[in-house]
Design a protein around this nucleic acid. Structure first.
Lengths: 138, 138, 138, 138
DNA sequence: GTGGTCTAGACCACT
DNA sequence: GTGGTCTAGACCACG
């Protein structure tokens, strides 16, 4: 059973709240913070924690179920599926790499200096040991 | 007059088509491929080239006008503003840096190895001398 | 473009309305009544036709999108994906066969006469050339 | 006293577990495997056998009592009612026929070949002499 | 005109 | 106590 799980959403973000939740769960599974059999916070618990509507959480959990990352059982709760880690590693890693490639390509296309790109990368790597913070992308 | 300008959009992308156009114009200005006085493709030309609705192009050009990056004059077309390069460098660089930071943070959150992150960055830097390709971000 | 598409739901059924919609779309694709590129009725149109809440239709369409059976584009509509027929045939046929096997097994388990089973099957085959009517299963 | 009664439930099924139990008891009565006066497994025994919550078994037995198919007596257990076979045959046969009709209709709606339908039916009839296995219906 | 997102709240089903 | 479904209605984004 997972002990400490912190989730957060940025309600200002153009990224839909339910997508932010889905991503954080996927990242938690991919990084091993959530393991097969672990129970996610209940819909009511999560919605209270994030101060959002329960339906929004429900939507996220349903999507995760369709992706076969979790199992939902009425009266029981939502648990991480056995094959979730594999699926997550297969897809999540590919996705974040793509994002990284896109971001670097953007930097190059906008004329940024190569050294500056590397410097930003290094600084971010050093800073990020903390849990995932949802992006504020435009 | 700009000689060769290639634009492309990914209609499947969750990023709005008109935003993709705006970004590409901004990048072109920031990197010097578009200079003050250059004329953008006409709405009709651009929409035909990209096979999209003319309204979408119009919306992008309107936004660029609001950002004071271009001037629209009836019977003449849409031309790059004198102060556009300065504005673009100020804002575009900040934006792409943010994207880069987000992307690296994502990689860390999903448990990617630090060395792997640096490797992807290096490879992308080496590969990207070509014009900007719109992201396929999820 | 699909000309005539009749959909219907049974609001009394224990099967969720949005699932009934999903099934009917899948069946329509599997049987060729809906082809790649065809546009589904708009959310508002469908909800009016079936006299249900638009959100219910939205839910069904989102699921179909996650199953990669349709493409949704804001301002455009929902269209059948190119690979939808293949996916549908692969999964839908397997599903309905399973249902049939289950139903026959049920009949046997409840002591029904073999001849009677065949008779019911034949009668239903003869009767069913009409469009799919959602089940009233208990 | 019934000698050998095998029950099984599919916890993944969208059909409620207690409904699966009810159906199996009904089928057992309809087919004569359970006769008036026979004792059902105790709640504790059944819940242990199926590895489910005792409350779920209790609910199933309570429903069967409401249907007048069984009698529950403290200190004695749950026994099949005298009139159970008649009731079961009247209702169960109607129900399974309906399911069969639905399943065949589904096959037709999804474009399945008529001959294939008959083939699946025949194969299932030949195969099914074994006790009822709960459906995995979607 | 499309669909997307979120809220609020009701009622149901299951354990 | 869990989650599931549906409704009603608001506001936004896109073409």
């Amino acid at each position: 059973m997972a002990e400490k799980l912190s989730f957060c959403v940025n309600i200002e973000s153009p990224i839909a709240v339910y997508v932010q939740i889905e991503n954080q769960v996927q990242f938690a599974i991919a990084s091993g913070r959530l393991k097969p059999g672990d129970t996610l916070p209940s819909v009511r618990e999560m919605s209270g924690m994030l101060n959002i509507n329960p339906n929004t959480v429900t939507k996220a959990y349903r999507d995760l179920e369709l992706l076969q990352l979790v199992h939902t059982r009425r009266g029981v709760g939502v648990t991480v599926a056995d094959k979730a880690p594999k699926i997550c590693k297969d897809t999540t890693v590919a996705m974040v790499k793509l994002h990284l490639i896109d971001a670097v390509a953007e930097c190059m296309a906008s004329g940024l200096n190569t050294n500056e790109v590397r410097k930003v990368v290094s600084e971010t790597i050093d800073a990020k040991t903390a849990p995932y913070q949802p992006a504020k992308r435009k």
